[in-house]
Amino acid sequence: METTPAARARGITKSFGDVVALDGVDLDIPAGQVHGLVGPNGAGKTTLLGLLLGLSVADGGTLEILGAPVSRVFGVPDGVAGFVDGPGLYPSLTARQNLAALAALRGYGGSRTNVVDDALEQVGLTDVADDRLRGFSLGMRQRLGLAAALLTQPRLLVLDEPSNGLDPASKRHVHRVLSRLAADGTAVVISSHRMDDLAALCSEVTILATGRVVFTGPVAKLAAESGELDYRLVTSDADAAVRIASGTPGLEVLADDDPLRARQDDALIVRAPVPVLDELVARLVRADVAVRELGPVVPPLEAAFLALTGADDPSPTEKEAR
């Protein structure tokens, strides 16, 4: 049985004047996968998403979308949908009018009403279907943008920061929609700075830095790339915990004057590989010290991202300032 990836890029390059946006990018996105695309600002994510949507063509390399080579602007095959740089809908129109107009543009004709209603229902906007967009929150606009993309029943869905402005309930709703699409065979490419979203949704991620791929593969493999992490440990007896941790081989307790430690109150910050952490927990339990909380200070995905893209490990103050 022949299998075709939803998107396949080899050696893609793209420049804007003197600025190299993409430099030899390879990418494979199989059908039915939610694929994360991450990278610092200016890494080339938007440019790559634009190529996938057919907004522009690469200067070099090859790109195949749904099995068809793409060699000209708007040369992507039917079945590709999504948005880059925000959903881009019209505030003077109602949600239904926005979608109906798009359905008409895509040639849905007589079945337009059903298609629009289905899309609105999928993203949970049926109740506000006849409200003008100018009263919508950012999260509602994001969901409507997703509904607009769903109108075409895409085989490749490209979304730029789809969780922007979503409250937790809306985010869960959107995640469910995307997961269901992937289960039905649609490839979903998500660009996001939200590592928790990517960890929750994506089976694979690609990290771009200065136009190059620095990692692509399963999320679990990426987490492993992060190496030793800092962990926050809260126990029932802080002094005993410090004593026991200090005596555990292969484990480093961050000093009191370490910036990471500064605002942790009774918490202890330790740096160690996972097996050493297991040993620490065992020792604490044997000493009748209760472990109330143990978790990475920086999530593994974010730590790997920072390590791979060469970004400095931010201090807690910097993190809070984001």
Partner: peptide, 13 residues
């Protein structure tokens, strides 16, 4: 990786 689905080559939209 590729999904176990067969995708015909589609014409340009």
């Amino acid at each position: 990786t590729t999904a176990p689905t067969t995708t015909d080559r589609r014409p340009d939209a």
